[in-house]
Design a protein around this nucleic acid. Structure first.
Length: 849
RNA sequence: GGGCGCUUAGCUCAGUUGGCUAGAGCAUCUCGUUUACACCGAGAGGGUCGGGGGUUCGAAUCCCUCAGCGCCCACCA
């Protein structure tokens, strides 16, 4: 079987994945200690973006490594119904057809979206496969699967029974565009330069006016009071009086409330309980009426004829014009403040009053905090633990209700005769139910997606009912983007502790965002989105994986780099060609045999691979993927290809070459699974699947022999350097005094350093290879010799400065006294070496002069 | 208003608990048609680690401070 000259990833990748999948390699082995991780479920009807690629790759590296290490390993894939996200897409489809969600019942909409998602669903899963993720497909969980809903209802019931669920009329973040409320964290706050308008409200029964300051004059129609601070001398006497509300002629009272900051604005605040969270609270304290003037569709209601039905976004200038006509504007000043925006539609979020289901978050947050304080979960980067604690300390009650049909229905029913009487019941398919002779109507809202996603680790592992995967809970690693720290990680910890009394995962690794090549955030509107599937088509899946993890550290945003992907592709090709070389040499009928190191190079390469192996293990264990990848890259490219293969051309050791190749493939497999498995499958002496092979085991070697080879390398490198720095491109001969290292490795040195001949002499001639300290010379003509002088002078100068630095260090009594003895000893040896080198260099210079 | 992070070679970034001459990829320069690979090989140049101060025998790494950049959280109208 012959390998093609260059590796063509697309020719092999799909077949290799199919081989893994059909052989059951993704299934947990059932043997050894467990290791588990759960994929953050990508949107079922969407396409993977570059962030998913990083996500899946990072986990896959750990998972493949652990599997090879003998762990009973599972990587659980998922698909997300992505409630709101998907709904927005479907809503657009409806609009295209000229339809509206209000034309259908919840059931109708639900099944329409279900079909819509079902049509698209395969894409995402194919893309996960294209990335090489070794997920156990038969354990895939969709967020609307029966078992998910069952668990979510169980959690809701438990919370309900324990008094942690309440239904309340509260100020919610409302999207008038999508007609649903949001959780606090879904609101995007933007710093804005706005205006602060000072509006005059004339007093009744008293001469004068009171001036209020507001950023939202259009809410004036909902004003029910003016509030001042009780101790504010300016207004003390006015408390209890009434003012005439401009544009409406309504009379409203002046009240006193501590909430007012006398320093801000005019010290008098218009109170609009229906449209401002603070005013809502003031309103409750003072038992004020709530007048809703902005409807849930964003149009003005309960306002004078001329404003009625207008869109709230465009009404402000009209209101200001009317106020101006009434001579009610006293002042207009610039004012910077933050405005909450709908992250999806880009329109401002309206604070509106709505009855919703809330979760009392305090007790859950406290438990999560305690677990974090106990260091039950480790974070990469570590600083994120503090950020998360900060969030948990300040978190507000969680609004679980969403007014969209695509989601898990909230299992609650309301007594038709008694609105305050709500009961829990799972018969959500029925609009009305009868319990104890009373008739109940169901809640039409669905759960916030994160309420179900927050239960993901124990849902997917069936931890609550001890299913076959229950042994994998708590999971070992949770890896996702930093942006999901509070919306997802926090919820999983809180709900995990609540339901299972255990933290849902032990390690949390957070990656930053993948930015575009110019370090800009990728977005559809900017048109700078990089599609991972395009990268795979062009460079191969392994190249994408290698390129994505290179130089990337946790929590840090980093630009996508085509150069790094190309470098990854080149690495795959290098691996391919190493295999080609070995296969050509060993032939189709070679059979694996116990390798025995013979040459110096043999001993050396074993030592190199052992060091690489140790470094790779350590790096993966501490989630330093870039570092691990670099170790793989250099061990294989520099040590195996550039030195060992070259040395093998002189004196091949077949059994060891096979071992070196197989070991290289194993070490590289977690990072570049496709090319390594492709090669493994092609090699006639392997008849297993690399993916489920064990992690490499090392063989014994001689440190002394390995060290000898390192000295050969030094000599070769210097010979190359000197030859390179001399004019012309000729092969030089090497002459030497009696030296067993050179004697024994003549042909190898000759080959590696591209020398002419090697000759034993008793009189030196030419340029001495002074740095290595051997009595060896490149036999160059007298004319060329002079050219070498500069080299020597430069080396001499830099060695002198090294010596000065070392001497200064050793001259420091404190250093000698306080630094570790080993370090001091090393420094002394270095100084000695450098001093000897100076002597040699000086001798050489004398010869030249 | 709080919190977090970044500033290291021309570019993009690594650098674990302070300790050999601060690394990588790409780019640059010189040389190379050795039958694994030009998606290649050999060699080289390039950094006062943002500025200043401190702790220490020793600082890119710890502390303080200044400057520039970025992100997250927060119901001051």
């Amino acid at each position: 079987m012959k390998l093609a000259k260059a590796y063509e990833p697309n020719q092999y990748e799909p077949n290799i994945y199919a081989l893994w999948e059909t052989s059951g390699a993704f299934r947990p082995s059932g043997k050894g200690p467990t290791f588990s991780t759960v994929a953050p479920p990508p949107n079922a009807n969407g396409n993977l973006h570059i962030g998913h690629a990083l996500d899946l790759t990072t986990k896959d590296i750990v998972v493949r490594y652990k599997r090879m290490k003998g762990f009973d390993t599972i990587y659980i894939p998922g698909a997300d119904h992505a409630g709101f996200e998907t709904w927005v897409v479907y809503d657009r489809e409806l609009q295209k057809k000229g339809q509206s969600r209000f034309d259908f019942t919840r059931e109708q909409l639900y099944s329409q979206v279900w079909n819509f998602v079902d049509q698209q669903r395969g894409n995402m899963e194919l893309q996960v496969r294209a990335l090489g993720a070794s997920t156990s497909w038969e354990h895939l969980v969709f967020t609307l699967d029966e078992k998910v809903i069952k668990t979510v209802y169980g959690t809701f019931k438990k919370l309900w029974d324990e008094g942690l669920i309440y239904r309340g009329e509260r100020m919610v973040n409302y999207s008038t565009k999508y007609q649903t409320s949001y959780a606090d964290i879904e609101v995007e706050h933007r710093q804005e330069k706005g205006k602060l308008w000072h509006l005059a409200y004339p007093l009744i029964d008293k001469i004068g006016e009171i001036v209020v300051a507001t950023t939202r004059p259009e809410t004036i129609f909902g004003d029910v009071a003016v509030a001042v601070h009780p101790d504010d001398e300016r207004y003390k006497d006015l408390i209890g009086y009434h003012v005439l509300l401009p544009l409406t002629g309504r009379e409203i009272p002046i009240i006193a409330d501590e909430y007012v900051d006398p320093e801000f604005g005019t010290g008098a605040v218009k109170i609009t309980p229906a449209h401002d969270p603070n005013d809502f609270e003031v309103g409750k304290r003072h038992d004020l009426e709530r007048i809703q003037v902005i409807d849930f569709d964003g149009r003005m209601i309960n306002v004078p004829e001329q404003f009625l039905g207008h869109d709230v976004e465009s009404i402000r200038p009209k209101v200001l014009a009317a106020l101006k006509a009434d001579d009610a504007i006293r002042k207009e000043e610039d004012h910077e403040h933050t405005v909450g925006y709908d992250y999806k539609s880009g329109l401002p979020i309206q604070p509106l009053i709505k009855e919703q289901w809330f979760l009392k978050i305090q007790p859950l947050a406290e438990r999560a905090l305690a677990a974090l304080d106990n260091n039950e979960i480790r974070f990469w980067p570590a600083s994120k633990a503090e950020v998360l604690k900060q969030y948990l300390r300040n978190v507000h009650d969680w609004n679980l209700s969403r007014q969209i049909p695509w989601g898990i229905p909230i299992p609650a029913f309301q007594n038709v005769d008694d609105p305050a009487d709500w009961i829990f019941d799972e018969r959500v398919d029925e609009e009305f139910i009868t319990v104890d002779g009373k008739r109940y109507r169901r809640e039409e809202d669905t759960f916030d997606t994160w309420f179900s996603s927050g239960q993901w680790p124990f849902v997917t592992t069936d931890a609550l009912d001890g299913g076959e995967l229950a042994r994998f809970y708590p999971t070992d690693l949770m890896e996702t983007g930093t942006d999901l720290l509070d919306r997802w990680i926090a919820r999983m910890i809180m709900l995990g502790l609540y339901r299972t009394d255990q933290v849902p995962f032990r390690d949390v690794y957070l990656h930053g965002m993948v930015l575009d090549e110019n370090s800009q955030k990728m977005s559809k509107s900017k048109g700078n989105v990089i599609n991972p599937m395009d990268s795979i088509a062009e460079y191969g899946s392994d190249a994408l994986r290698l390129g994505l993890i290179a130089s990337r550290s946790p929590g840090q945003n980093q630009a996508f780099s085509t150069d790094r992907i190309i470098s990854g592709r080149n690495f795959c090709n290098k691996l391919w060609n190493i295999a080609r070389f070995v296969e050509n040499l060993l032939g189709d009928h070679y059979e694996l045999a116990t390798p025995v190191p013979k040459t110096l190079a043999d001993h050396w390469i074993i030592s190199e691979l052992k060091t690489a192996n140790d470094n790779i293990e350590r790096s993966i264990d501490s989630y330093r993927f870039a570092e691990a990848g670099e170790n793989v890259y250099h061990a294989i490219w520099d040590s195996v290809a550039d030195w060992y293969i070259e040395a093998s051309k002189q004196e091949p050791n077949h059994d060891l070459l096979a071992w070196v190749l197989n070991t290289s493939l194993k070490l590289a497999h977690p990072f570049a699974p496709f090319v390594t498995e492709t090669i493994w499958q092609t090699l006639p002496w392997n008849n297993t699947i690399l993916m489920t092979e064990g992690w490499p085991t090392m063989i014994n070697y001689s440190e002394i022999a390995a060290g000898e080879f390192a000295r050969v390398q030094e000599l070769v490198t210097e010979a190359r350097f000197v030859a390179n720095s001399l004019p012309g491109n000729q092969r030089y001969n090497l002459v030497y005094f009696k030296d067993s290292l050179i004697e024994d490795n003549q042909t190898l040195i000759k080959r590696l350093a591209k020398l002419g001949d090697i000759e034993l002499v008793d009189q030196p001639r030419g340029v001495r290879l002074a740095v290595t300290g051997r009595d060896a010379w490149l036999d160059v003509s007298a004319a060329t010799l002079a050219e070498h002088q500069t080299n020597l002078e430069q080396r001499l100068a830099s060695t002198h400065s090294d010596v000065r630095a070392l001497e200064a260090r050793l001259g420091n009594e404190n250093y000698v006294a306080k630094a570790p003895a080993k370090l001091v000893e090393e420094t002394k040896n270095q100084l000695q070496d450098k001093q000897e080198l100076i002597k040699r260099l000086q001798q050489e210079l004398e010869v030249l002069q």
